[in-house]
Write a protein that binds this DNA or RNA. Structure first.
Lengths: 240, 240
DNA sequence: CGGACCTTTGAGAGCAGTCAATGCTGGTGG
DNA sequence: CCACCAGCATTGACTGCTCTCAAAGGTCCG
């Protein structure tokens, strides 16, 4: 099997890739011709709960989520798990290891998942045919750096209701394909994971969801969420 | 005046540059030979309160803090200022704009400051003599991405005392030159700025400092902080 | 010396955390 | 097909911490 072509053989998998959307690239051959294929390792499949890598592990490379969802976690010295980020299809992870050479957090699959890894050697190589791809990658890196910022903004909100509304609103945006507008979604993570991600007790998260339901903003059935009033949700996320 | 050489003419200014510390580079010529000089614009001086750029501004380039301190702020829709980050000498800022092409937050000088800017064109250029510098830059980018993570970790702590201790401990680490161990420091930011950065009310921050003083961990005189028991501080930051 | 800004301190109310118990759901095996 | 079980989600009661409001004290600068 050819590792390079395997990782991007399927158009379905590459369609939402963050590395792809660049000026004109719909050329003949379609999705099969991923410009990053030469840099990638074979796709890797993960089972629910399986660990992609642990904090302290040597940097294997930057990772792209193709399917499923993962979380980055670290542990406070008292053993408390902190969820630093969720990683959805099309998003990059592992950038924080580019400098230190080793990962700063554990990354665990929330469900069965497929990822695409780019060895760091390829990224740092100064071979010229890859220069264009490198530029594109630099942009993707900036994108990822930018994605951390909203998380900080969220955590700076001191009202639990605001945090929960913001979290939901942003997850919605990240999950919906460009142009579409999701009306319902199934959360890939537990209430506990959400709580550890937005800095609240899990009971507070649960109460928050219930409250949003009572107010007619969403409808909750466990992890299945129906958005009844997207504007109200956005308003709650942005105001107060 | 030659812009390129001006930006790194002074060894004093470049000594702590994040871009500099690479394998062997002490060669003759010393600090004057900054390998990034060809990529940089002339140094820029900022007065206290002066804005380097605003959120939404077109990306001018990645910025290195040479002297002084700055803060990145954004405003919640209700007008509340949120301090996303503080930027100290030797640190990079503006990475989050690499993808969108425009800055995501206002950056304001906390005191008079000097910065060194790298136009984005130079960074994306695939000219080969710069390839090495690009690799180094990629590492610096990863470093910056990694610096955002601790902020999230900090905000996930729910106890005010922990957040304050963590904030102080990390600021200490960032401010002390490698190898040295600071015993006292002068905070470049106000209690209000700290509060808006770690998600607390300014009164809570003030009380936290007082508490640390009462416990014999630090000594407080306004913005001047003396570390009386570094181990205790580290312990508070990492435990409970 | 005056004033603006920053910091500290106090008192009270409200919100979120903790502890505890019940309910629900999805998967497994009888 | 149903019973059971484990993990997850919801709800309630109570405590405690942090926010808010308010005022006084300090510091730095003009």
């Amino acid at each position: 099997m050819d590792p390079a072509s395997d990782s991007c053989r399927s158009g379905r998998l590459c369609a939402r890739c963050v590395l792809r959307p660049v000026a004109g690239q719909p050329g003949p051959g379609g999705d099969a011709s991923c410009p990053f294929a030469p840099l990638a390792e074979p796709l890797r499949q993960l089972a629910r709960g399986e660990r992609l890598h642990a904090g302290g592990d040597e940097l294997d490379g930057v990772t792209l989520v193709v399917e499923g969802a993962l979380k980055s976690v670290c542990f406070a010295p008292d053993g408390e798990e902190q969820v630093l980020a969720f990683h959805l299809p099309g998003e990059l992870l592992g950038l924080d290891a580019l400098s230190a050479g080793r990962h700063g957090s554990d990354v665990v699959a929330l469900s069965s998942a497929i990822v695409c890894q780019f060895p760091v050697d390829g990224l740092l190589s100064r071979a010229t045919p890859r220069a264009v791809a490198q530029g594109r990658l630099l942009r993707a890196i900036g994108e990822s750096a930018a994605r951390d910022r909203p998380q900080v903004q969220l955590l700076l909100r001191r009202q639990a209701a605001e945090r929960i509304a913001l979290f939901l609103d942003r997850l919605l945006i990240r999950m919906q394909p460009p142009g579409e507008s999701l009306v319902e979604l199934t959360l890939p993570m537990s209430r506990d994971d959400i709580a550890r991600h937005i800095g609240l007790a899990l009971e507070t998260v649960s109460r928050g969801f219930t409250r949003l339901q009572d107010d007619g903003v969403i409808r909750v059935l466990g992890r299945h969420i129906e958005i009844r009033d997207p504007d109200a949700l956005a308003r709650l996320a942005r105001r107060s």
